[in-house]
């Protein structure tokens, strides 16, 4: 009886193991079923970790081809696009993505140009408003004498012509 029980447990264990292995295999999926387009959709968001500013989807080196295959494997194992990207960032740093994944770096990257743009536009608006204020107040604008002012040049030329005529 004991022997039968032991055999039953053994058979059960084999079955569980078989199911488990089948499940793992099913979960892993077939990398061949992940299309090139799906791989490129992720690779496009990454830069080659060793080349110079070349997106991973178009980089022609052998290393990049291997990294694309790695993306394919990870996708086949069920990883999402973001998980693949996070994995690459973890291994190679923020330089492999077009915008940093780290919240501080991302904020720094995007907030500074947006801040500069906003401040510049506000400054431009304020300057325009001050000009408008001057106009509304009817402030008379006095032209500043300058060598380039046409009237000044004309009067200067006229004076020279008069002087020359006087000398003749």
């Amino acid at each position: 009886m004991k022997r039968l029980i032991m055999m039953g447990i053994g058979a059960l264990a084999v079955l569980v193991l078989a199911f488990a292995l089948t499940g793992i295999a099913a979960a892993q999926g077939d990398p061949k079923k992940v299309s090139d387009d799906a791989v490129n959709a992720v690779a496009r968001k990454l830069y080659c970790p060793v080349c110079e500013n070349i997106p991973l989807d178009v980089c022609g080196t052998t290393a990049c081809a291997q990294w694309r295959e790695e993306i394919r494997l990870q996708l086949a194992e069920g990883a999402t696009d973001q998980q693949v990207i996070d994995d690459f960032v973890k291994r190679f740093g923020d330089r492999v993505v077009g915008t940093p994944q780290d919240p501080t770096l991302r904020a720094l990257s995007l907030a500074i140009p947006l801040g500069i743009s906003a401040l510049s536009l506000i400054a431009a608006i304020l300057v325009f408003m001050s000009w408008r204020g001057e106009l509304v107040r009817g402030k008379k604008v006095q032209p500043v004498a300058s060598p380039s002012a046409p009237a000044t040049i004309d009067s200067y030329r006229a004076r020279i012509e008069r002087d020359l005529a006087a000398r003749r």
Binding site: R95, V97, T99, L105
Partner: peptide, 21 residues
């Protein structure tokens, strides 16, 4: 340059950044 000099990391701002701003 700022990230490398002051934050001890190396970042790339690529197409995503430029197409956003």
């Amino acid at each position: 340059i700022v990230s490398e000099l002051f934050m001890n990391t190396n970042i790339t701002l690529g197409r995503d950044y430029f197409l956003a701003v």
